[in-house]
Each structure stands twice: as structure tokens, then as C-alpha cells.
Amino acid sequence: MSLSTLKNRRERGFLDGQFLIAMPGMADSNFARTVIYICAHSDAGAMGFVINRPQSLTFTDVLLHLEMIKSDDAIMLPRAAREFPIQTGGPVESGRGFVLHSDDYLSDSSIPVSDDISMTATLDIVRAISKGGGPKRATMLLGYAGWGAGQLEAEIGNNGWLNCAPNEELIFDRSLDDKYERALALLGVTPAMLSSEAGHA
């Protein structure tokens, strides 16, 4: 699914705002042990963000790259901006930044994902965060995960993914190392349980 399709969609699909949790047998290394928050799902495809993969770049690096600050000014950034989390959102358009955030911040370019969460991919939100403003809860993701028409449904049918209702705390939690296990716990299962069941008809 393209971003233009996301912006123009009228109805929410049944996986919109859901978590996808990779099964242990996931063959694609881009998605092994990932938790994905689905932002849009329709007959045209799906798109979402991996929420448990670290990113080596910092928010300061992003501001410098965008030439929104000079290197000498980096130390003057508010602490919240210097510590603002950035993650790897997926393999598609990995050089492009998106901010997933609470709905207390909205601009003309913000796209509602659920009743409580929106996504903004324009510089206005980056500028607001750099000045210590912006949404109360947010994370920046570089790149996204995308599927063509019917592709995600086929992967779920082939036992590639589990899906469940999201947990907002988990979306914005900065502790990434055990987020996969905590997402599975929402379903009452552990990785060991899934591994022992894999391969049994």
C-alpha cells in the first residue's frame, strides 16, 4: 500500500490499529521477532511500522541532516528533544521519517490511525518536537512495512503472523529488547510455546 492510498482511504480495514506479531518461523529477516503496528489495511494492501527495532540515528542527527539546526546548537536542544526516540519502522523508504503519536497534536497533514493515535510525516511536527513541544507521546520511525493487495492476508494464512488488539503503552514504550515477548503476552503465549507448536499439524 502506498502512502497516497493511506491518505485517500475512507474506511478502516479490520487490521487497522492492530498488532502483528511475527511467528518464530518468520523467514524474512526484516521481520524476524518483530511487532508491527498496522496503520492501514484495505483491499489495496497494508502498511504499518515495526515498533521494536532500534535505530542508530538520534533525533539530533535527524535535525542536523534536515539542516533545522547547526551542530553548535545541538547542545541547546531541550532534553526531551535530545532524548526523543527513533526506531527502524521497516524496509520501505527507510530514509523517510514518520512520527506516530498521541492525538493531542494534530496538523493538516496528520492522519488518524485509531481513535487515540495519529501519524504525521511532515516537518511541522519535527520542528515542534525540537522546541520541546509536539505530542505528549510519540516516537519517530524511519521507513515502514508495506504489503500489496492480498499479500498480508496470505502471510497470515500461512501462519506467518499473529494479530491482536494493540496496547498503547507498548507502542510508545522505549524498552525494545523484550517488547516482542510482552506483545505475545497480550495473547497469553510465550515464544517457547509457539516454537514447540511449530511444525505440528
Rank of each mutant, 00 (worst) to 15 (best):
M1F: 12
L3H: 10
K7A: 10
K7P: 06
K7N: 12
E11Y: 05
G13D: 01
G13R: 01
F14P: 10
D16W: 01
G17S: 02
Q18H: 14
F19K: 07
A22G: 10
A22S: 12
M23S: 05
M26A: 08
N30M: 04
R33H: 14
R33F: 04
R33S: 14
V35L: 07
I38G: 04
G45I: 06
F49G: 00
F49P: 00
V50K: 10
P54R: 15
P54D: 09
P54E: 04
Q55Y: 11
L57G: 01
F59G: 00
T60W: 01
T60G: 02
V62C: 05
V62M: 06
V62A: 06
L63S: 00
L63R: 04
L64M: 01
E67H: 08
M68L: 14
S71N: 09
R79T: 15
R79G: 08
R82C: 03
I86F: 08
Q87Y: 12
Q87M: 15
G90V: 11
G90P: 05
G90Q: 09
P91G: 10
P91T: 10
E93D: 02
E93I: 14
E93A: 15
G95N: 04
F98G: 03
L100C: 10
S102N: 04
S102A: 03
D103W: 03
D104P: 05
Y105R: 08
L106N: 12
L106R: 15
L106Q: 13
S107C: 01
D108E: 12
I111N: 04
S114T: 15
D115A: 14
D116G: 13
S118H: 12
S118D: 02
T120G: 04
T120C: 06
A121K: 03
T122K: 08
D124M: 03
S130E: 03
S130D: 00
S130W: 07
K131M: 15
P135Y: 07
K136W: 01
R137K: 13
T139G: 13
Y144E: 01
A145F: 02
G148L: 07
A149T: 05
Q151W: 05
Q151A: 13
L152M: 08
A154N: 14
G157R: 13
G157P: 08
G157I: 02
G157V: 06
N159V: 09
W161D: 01
L162W: 14
A165H: 12
E168V: 09
I171S: 02
D173Q: 09
E181V: 15
R182M: 00
L184V: 01
L187N: 05
L187F: 02
A192L: 13
M193I: 08
L194N: 06
S196H: 12
E197C: 11
A198Q: 07
A198C: 04
G199W: 02
G199H: 03
H200W: 14
A201I: 13
